[in-house]
Amino acid sequence: MADVVCCLFAAAGFDRAAVGILGAGRRLADSSGGKLVALVLGPANEAVASGASAVADRVLVADQAALAEYEPETYLSALVALAKPISPAAVLLGSDSYSQELTPRLAHRLGGSAAGDAVAIANDAGTLRVTRGVYGGKAVAVLALKRAPAVVWMRARAMDPADAAGRSAGSVEKAALADLPASRVKLLNRHVEAKSGVRLEDARLIVSGGRGLGGPEPFKQLQELADAMGAQMAASRAACDAGWVPPSWQVGQTGKKVAPELYMAIAISGASQHIMGIADSKVICAINRDPDAPIFKHCRFGLVEDYQKVIGPLRQAISQSR
């Protein structure tokens, strides 16, 4: 009952989240004296299986046709079928929306306790303790999960990789799952937005806009600035709710968690819920016409100005220096 399970989705590839979740899982398994088992679900992906085996003691690959596309009911059944016989102390997932969706239901089916958005997990004399932001980031709580397994989705990208030096690779086994129940939910269509460059979560430079921009048009100016910098675009919830930009741009408590070298917040007030998504940025800077905007409390440098006056000249200045 000290084993740790990490859940990986093959379709996501062996990305930074997979590396982070395996790192967190490895450390937790080692500190609990248990084994680390990685479950890999979805279409066969050699990179994920071998990447996982470098860190885990055992990798179970479930790539049957029924799991070709993510669908909550079947993936849940598959995870339960794979994890239950292991009787793990903890089951760790990443911060993608699928993992968030599955976490509480998986905990329920395994008879455990769930928690999400964990920034740390530790074994305290057999009880797993999870650290997470609460009250929209205004406080930090350590939750003691009373039932086993602890099923936890973590800020995987912020987790250190495992120290795999000197380890021999874990076994890789194919798991054929019989009798996955017929799903009562059928995927009809999946739309993936065309976005050039890296994904927001992996971006090193981000230009982000808020309600103070006043409409969708100024986002085009911001896009030009971002293009000149080679940056990705993001937005506050207020800008997304207004329909100015797609929901996938939202950063914060209920949006993406980003960790760029530079996050530039333009006409964003800096509500705690927004900060929850950007707190891991190396440097935050802002342009806001209100010198008392809370965002400046998180900034290394800032400019108190009307954005309309500075975005164009700023783009030019940055383009020229390149």
Partner: peptide, 9 residues
């Protein structure tokens, strides 16, 4: 909504 767009079920 998903991380990169949307899904219809």
């Amino acid at each position: 909504q998903t991380d990169s767009g949307w899904e219809a079920f």
